[in-house]
Write a protein that binds this DNA or RNA. Structure first.
Length: 475
RNA sequence: GUUCCCUUCGUCUAGAGGCCUAGGACACGUCCCUUUCACGGAUGUAACACGGGUUCGAAUCCCGUAGGGAACGCCA
């Protein structure tokens, strides 16, 4: 039997991080078993479904590298006729029936149940009643004949055996009075028609699984293997929501996380293969088993995501990262800037946790005039610094064609040795501030070599002017 | 309210009755390296929710309790 899994998002919003993980699990399982991974858009809620959301789902899945099989994506809304057909077939087989209750009657039923402290449930008044007794002018719905006695049991691949007494399940609606299918019904018909063998989804659907099994059974269709994955929570343990910051894949992308890092992190959240921490989704697919998904919920830990991302930043190709930096910048960038950036990116990428950080730390390669941040300004606004800067300027000017990392290093250490009793920091602090406008940077001498002598001397001169204008230069 | 699910360091987790003095990763502390910040290396703090069973032996099996979550629509 070929394994067929699916991801079935409803396009009512952006692709959620939890949804992405579900997709990842389904993708991995299909890959592992040599099966298929299908995509179905559950757009039966016409009020809330949007074209933008559908496109965002495609975009984000592709960004994550999750390719789906099948000639075309299945749109649930396009299958309404088939859903209705199955519902009527069920009536014909005596497994479902028309119900002519009005919304008012249902409301009364609910109120009565609540008054008695019971769960609001349909009282099955039309289950065995002859349709000839139907009131005129009421369009019926179709309800399933749910079993009345016994238990319904699901062997869940994640949660284990789950049993619910049938007394808890009522005759829920399959087809609305306007002829449209309910979600519960549409899902089953689609999963059956698509040949889905394994349903891996959020555990908010665990309760639905019982109801869905009833439909599968009524049609005599094989019930797929269910695996209900616990939801991802925020750092405080509450359900992920807007106040936790990012929750959609697009937001993680904007925050500068690499797709391979997001995949790795998400896969490791709630699933494990021993102590393995860093792996590609292809590697995970080889290891993957639904049984290894954890039954308990997990929390999003941005610090750990940062760590995973740091790992993949280092592995990432220089050109790719340079392009990311350029597109994330609003600066006017020419060929000289690009060449500097490409030469400097290697040292830069091992220091940044995200593309956003990388972009910010690469900025000094891309500007023509350095702006000093607060700490850099403080470092320059200093008597010794001004003194040192003159020494540096003179020494570097003498370097001429030998403006290499090594030569610069030697020159700076020479100054430190002879003027500052060997304290190299006395030279480095103002120099870094002048070149980068910050108090942190990648290895500075190398960066200076990349910038080139002309650019460096220009920046040193600018720093000297700045120091002059800011007064603390009496020596 | 009813039903269902969950519970190992702060977080993600390993763990399938003896391999557990409970392991790894992130975070945090200390030290080393160092031109800064990182990285890296070393090292340390830190958990089986609670209470009963079963067993020679329980993080692991069973039952309760507490806490957390989910579902109960002519929403998906």
């Amino acid at each position: 039997m070929t394994v067929i899994t699916r991801f079935a998002p409803s396009p009512t919003g952006m692709l959620h991080i939890g949804g992405a993980r579900t997709a990842l699990f389904n993708w991995c399982y299909a890959k592992k078993t040599g099966g298929k991974f299908l995509l179905r858009i559950e757009d039966t809620d016409k009020e809330r479904s949007t074209k933008e959301a559908i496109e965002a789902i495609f975009r984000d899945l592709k960004w994550l590298g999750l390719d789906w099989d099948g000639d075309a994506t299945v749109y649930q809304s396009a299958r309404a006729a088939r859903h209705a057909e199955v519902a009527h077939e069920l009536v014909k087989r005596g497994r479902a029936y028309f119900c002519y209750c009005t919304p008012e009657e249902l409301e009364a039923m609910k109120a009565e149940a609540q008054a008695k402290g019971e769960q609001p449930r349909y009282n099955r008044m039309w289950r065995d009643r002859n349709p000839s007794e139907a009131p005129a002018g009421v369009k019926p719905v179709i309800r399933i004949k749910a079993p009345i006695d016994g238990d319904t049991v699901i062997e869940d691949a994640v949660q284990g055996r789950v049993t619910v007494p049938n007394s808890q399940l009522d005759d829920f609606i399959l087809l609305r009075s306007d002829g449209s299918p309910t979600y519960m019904h549409a899902v089953v018909v689609d999963d059956a028609d698509m040949g889905i063998t394994h349903v891996i989804r959020g555990d908010d659907h665990l309760n639905n699984a019982f109801r869905q099994k009833i439909i599968f059974d009524a049609m005599g269709w094989p019930v797929p293997v269910f695996g209900h994955v616990p939801l991802i929570h925020g750092a405080d343990g509450a359900k992920l929501s807007k106040r936790h910051g990012a929750q959609s894949v697009g937001e993680f992308k904007d925050m500068g996380y690499l797709p391979e890092a997001v995949c790795n992190y998400l896969l490791r959240l709630g699933w494990s293969h021993g102590d393995d921490e860093l792996f590609t989704k292809e590697q995970a697919a080889e290891w993957f088993d639904v049984n290894d998904i954890n039954a308990g919920p997990s929390r999003l830990d941005m610090k750990k995501l940062d760590h995973v991302n740091t790992h993949y930043m280092r592995l990432a190709d220089d050109t790719r990262l340079a392009e990311e930096v350029i597109t994330r910048n609003s600066l006017k960038i020419d060929e000289t800037h690009k060449a500097r950036l490409l030469a400097g990116i290697h040292d830069l990428k091992s220091r940044a946790a995200t593309l956003v950080q990388l972009t910010s730390e690469a900025k000094f390669y891309l500007v023509d005039e350095v702006a000093y941040d607060e700490k850099a300004a403080a470092a320059l606004n200093d008597h010794d610094a001004h003194h040192a800067m003159h020494h540096i300027y003179d020494a570097l000017a003498r370097l001429g064609a030998d403006f290499t990392e090594t030569a610069i290093d030697t020159a700076c250490r020479h100054i430190a040795e002879h003027v500052y009793a060997g304290k190299l920091a006395k030279v480095m602090m103002p120099l870094r501030a002048a070149i980068c406008g910050t108090t942190t940077s990648p290895p500075l001498f190398k960066a200076m070599e990349i910038l080139g002598q002309a650019e460096v001397m220009k920046r040193l001169k600018a720093a000297l002017h700045w120091m002059h204008d800011h007064g603390h230069h009496h020596h």
